[in-house]
Design a protein around this nucleic acid. Structure first.
Length: 451
RNA sequence: GACCCCAUCGUCUAGUGGCCUAGGACACAGGGUUUUCAUCCCUGCAACACGGGUUCGACUCCCGUUGGGGUCGCCA
């Protein structure tokens, strides 16, 4: 039985690189019918925090990654590490440091001279190191806790890990760990070092490239299934051109052999596209509940809005959404008390000859008609069009800007129905008075916003 | 700097010596549908880093160069 592990240090939120490592481990376990162990590497008492641990659990849960054993905390296993350190000490393979840095004496592993260590890696070929380029390995720190390479080796052995799947950045630790496996008399596990996730400039993905924590992507309104799908395709490919894959399909096709050796740049554009694909396939119910928190948070939901009406509005923007959070931008005007206008839309469609007259006419037509349906609206629009002898677009565009504040919206009749008769009338009249006053409440353009 | 890893379109990748005038997806550009936007459809753009070998034949194998990345903590 294969057994893998995910072993994050709780010194910050779950990084997307860590998330992918966790995912690959999880996928490997699922694919082979093996087990996944979760181990929290909190030997650094100063930097490890409970919040981080919690954030990691939250993110793993959001991603849908569960584990079969653990979580084990290294902070609770000090005695175990101490025992093995003592063993190496008494065998003469390790020595105590003379440097006094803390309450204890650090225990350090003495490296053999000029030995070649070959790391057999499932992703890379064999990688050879010479011990002459390595330094002695700290086993126990002078604060009495175990150092990474030591705790890692002992735990991986004691927990029965058969395959160590971890980031590429650990490859240079591996020869040291192999030496420790040997010294301790532990059998060697298999290693698979997956390439790192890179930022747009090709260097390791970090904060300066933008969002790096899984929590951030959740917050920005990405659907966990889309995110996982995207992550799986970063450095791994099924080999048959599939892009959108269900988690079951991914599990079924997953293999270590198909993981690439090259670092992969995190392409947010592709994530957005994939997220849009998932959103378009969501049920209205699911999408509505996914999107609701964003509307509530920005305070634009209208409590009077009934469920069906709400869903109707969601259905209008569903295919336009790339992330859940965009709902406020795309559907905010349906709920807003007073709309703000996009400056360039006003210039383009409202500040034109005859627009005031056209808006006045459509107000009349709508007021004269009791019904407020697509059919009724169409009748009103045709009425104005014929009476004023104007083209459809001469009418539709100004009305759209008048009722939404924007030049882009879902189809005009549905949009108006979503806004409601009274609100439409009110906005039309407001627009008319702004037009007369020559002054509009313009939307503040955020950075990157385009008219 | 030392050691290690990596190298196909801008990006993610397919490709394991002939199937390659190198395939798909994202992005981008143009067009159609929608008198808006989005969706959808069509078209286009665009790559084997370079130089040597090996071979009847190299994107695929070997060597070198260049470029990029990672690691060099009593952090993990």
């Amino acid at each position: 039985m294969k057994k893998v592990r995910f072993a994050p240090a709780p010194t910050g939120y779950l990084h997307v690189g860590g998330a992918r490592t966790a995912l690959f481990n999880w996928l490997y376990a699922k694919n082979t019918g093996g087990k996944l162990v979760l181990r929290i590497e909190d030997t650094d008492a100063v930097r490890s925090t409970e919040e981080s641990t919690k954030a990691i659990f939250d993110s793993l849960e959001w991603l849908g990654i569960d584990w079969d054993e653990g979580p084990f905390f290294q902070s609770g296993r000090k005695e175990i590490y101490r025992k093995y350190a003592q063993e190496l000490l008494s065998k003469g393979l390790a020595y105590e440091s003379d440097e006094v840095k803390g309450a204890h004496k650090a225990v350090i592993f003495k490296l053999p001279d000029n030995r070649k260590i070959v790391v057999r890696d499932l992703i890379h070929a064999d990688v050879e190191f010479d011990t002459s380029v390595l330094k002695d390995i700290v086993l126990m720190k002078s604060d009495g806790t175990a150092a990474y390479n030591f705790a890692c080796v002992i735990d991986d052995h004691l927990m029965g890990i058969t395959h160590i799947i971890r980031g590429d950045d650990h490859i240079s630790n591996t020869p040291k760990q192999i030496l420790l496996y040997e010294a301790l008399g532990f059998p060697l596990p298999e290693f698979a070092h997956v390439p790192l996730i890179l930022g747009p400039d090709g260097s390791r993905l970090s904060k300066r490239h933008g969002a790096t924590s899984v929590g951030q992507y959740k917050k920005e309104g990405y659907f966990s299934k889309a995110f996982v799908n995207f992550l799986a395709l970063l450095g791994w490919a099924p080999g048959d051109n599939r892009e959108k894959m269900s988690i079951e399909e991914i599990i079924k096709s997953f293999s270590l052999e198909r993981i690439g050796k090259k670092g992969a740049i995190f392409d947010v554009k592709k994530l957005q596209w994939l997220n849009g694909v998932y959103i378009r396939e969501m049920s209205l119910e699911a999408l509505t509940s996914a999107v609701l928190p964003y509307l509530e948070e920005s305070g634009i939901t209208n409590k009077d809005t009934d469920e069906d009406h709400f869903k109707f509005i969601i259905s209008l923007v569903q295919e336009r959404l790339k992330t859940f959070s965009e709902i406020t931008e795309l559907a905010g005007f349906f709920f807003a008390k007073d709309i703000e206008y996009d400056e360039s839309a006003v210039k383009k469609y409202l500040l034109k000859e005859g627009v005031a007259g056209i808006l006045g006419k459509i107000i009349n037509e709508i007021e004269r008609e009791d019904a407020f349906s697509a059919a009724a609206l169409e009748k009103s629009f045709i009425g104005v069009k014929e009476e004023m002898n104007i083209s459809n677009s001469k009418l539709i565009h100004p009305v759209r800007v008048a009722v939404t504040g924007s030049a882009a919206s879902p189809p005009i009749f549905e949009t108006m129905i979503g806004i409601g008769r009274e609100n439409c009338l009110k906005r039309l009249k407001n627009t008319l008075s702004f037009l007369n006053a020559g002054k509009f409440p313009f939307k503040i353009q955020g950075p990157g916003a385009n008219a």
